[in-house]
Amino acid sequence: MATILTVDDSPSIRQMIRVALSPAGHTILEAGDGAEGLRKAQAEPVDLVITDLNMPVMDGLELIRRLRGVPALSGLPIVFLSTESNDGVKQQAKAAGATGWITKPFKPEQLVSVVTKLVRR
């Protein structure tokens, strides 16, 4: 199965993602902000990144831009998981290179479905 990096400053959200995806056989790596997420994505092979928007140190948009700037990671699927549902923010995320978008709070089955589709590509 896939190795998924979840980047969110909320430990409870990271835990919810782990609880939703681990039973499907996925390995979950965690980071508390975008800078840590970028370091982990460059240090360990990951199949997909799930990132929040608002985080300290480096936000999700900047993380996506930085990941897209690393040749080896440029095709990595990135799902934006945020409380923001504003179309302007969605457009910024898409322009930065986000593959998909899920609004918090999320249903575990929705997350599993999106991840399954993206890691099969």
Rank of each mutant, 00 (worst) to 15 (best):
I13N: 07
L5A: 07
N86D: 15
T3G: 11
F80M: 15
A31Q: 05
I50R: 09
A98V: 07
N86Y: 02
W101V: 09
S113Y: 04
V89F: 12
P11D: 10
S85H: 11
I17P: 11
D9H: 07
Q92L: 15
G32H: 01
W101R: 13
G37M: 11
T103N: 10
V49L: 10
A95S: 03
E62F: 07
P23N: 03
A93K: 13
A98N: 06
G100N: 15
A2W: 00
R18T: 14
Q92F: 10
D9E: 06
H26Y: 03
S74M: 08
N86F: 02
V70S: 12
D47S: 03
I78W: 00
R39T: 00
L53P: 09
Q110G: 04
D9F: 05
D9S: 08
L67G: 11
T3V: 13
T83L: 08
M55S: 12
L48K: 13
L73P: 11
F80E: 05
G97P: 14
D8S: 12
R39H: 02
R68M: 08
A43D: 08
D52A: 09
L76R: 00
I64Q: 01
S22R: 07
G34D: 02
G69C: 11
P45E: 07
L61V: 14
P71C: 11
D87R: 12
M16I: 05
Q92T: 14
M16E: 13
G69R: 12
E62T: 15
V49E: 01
T99Q: 06
T3L: 08
P56M: 14
L21W: 02
L29W: 01
F106K: 04
I78R: 04
P105N: 04
A2Y: 01
I78K: 07
K90H: 06
A20R: 03
T103I: 08
I4M: 15
A41D: 00
G100C: 11
T116M: 02
I17R: 02
P77D: 00
R121V: 13
I13F: 09
G32A: 13
V46T: 04
W101I: 03
V70P: 12
Q42H: 00
A20L: 08
P71E: 14
E62H: 07
R66T: 02
L5Y: 02
E36Q: 04
A96N: 08
L61Y: 06
L29A: 03
L73G: 11
D87Y: 11
I50A: 13
L81F: 06
N86C: 10
E109D: 12
T51N: 07
Q110E: 10
G25I: 00
R65T: 06
A93E: 08
E84H: 09
L29K: 02
